[in-house]
Write a protein that binds this DNA or RNA. Structure first.
Length: 154
DNA sequence: GCCAACGTTGGC
DNA sequence: GCCAACGTTGGC
């Protein structure tokens, strides 16, 4: 399978592109949505492109680029008693929740606000532009990834 | 902080 | 398996 592209959301209070720039890589834990889980477990491959999206931000939007540096593996926090991400139904033998690891690629000088994404030609079909779309891990097309990257660099 | 949209839970 | 109640997400 050739390289795929993704958009991954995170609230700035939890993690930002600046944090990723500092850390180099980070585990993407705590996703508790089956559709997003399926993407992480089944479809993400090392080298895939990631649009890093800040949600609930001012303004919300794409703040930089990352890449998948480790494909899906059981979410280590899901099995940890007392952890916020603990889920009693998840066991190491039968994991339910999955993480990936992402690596820093680029931090945009300016955030690309959601409003800009919405008014950019070629991005009409992006999931994040659809009303009511709350999925925190979304597929994107190569073309969408390239358009957003170009805006981020100017 | 509001609230609409969406996902999940659980009684029946 | 339906569906109401509830919790969460996330733009505004």
């Amino acid at each position: 399978m050739s390289k795929r592209y993704w958009l991954m959301k995170c609230e700035p209070g939890a993690y930002t592109i600046a944090d990723l720039e500092r850390d180099g890589t980070t585990g993407w834990e705590g996703v508790r949505n089956y559709q997003a889980r399926n993407f992480m477990r089944d479809d993400m491959r090392v080298g895939d492109g990631v649009l890093f999206y800040a949600s609930n931000a001012d303004p919300s939007g794409v703040t930089g680029l990352a890449t998948i540096s480790r494909a899906g593996y059981p979410d280590p926090f899901a099995a940890r008693q007392g952890h916020d991400y603990h889920d009693p139904k998840h066991t190491t033998e039968k994991p339910i929740w999955f993480s990936v690891e992402i690596a820093f690629v680029e931090r945009f000088a300016n955030v690309i606000p959601l409003a800009t994404l919405k008014e950019t030609r070629g991005l009409e079909k992006m999931m994040v532009n659809q009303p009511g779309s709350r999925l925190s891990v979304q597929p994107a097309t190569k073309r969408e990834f390239e358009i957003v990257s170009r805006i981020g660099r100017r």
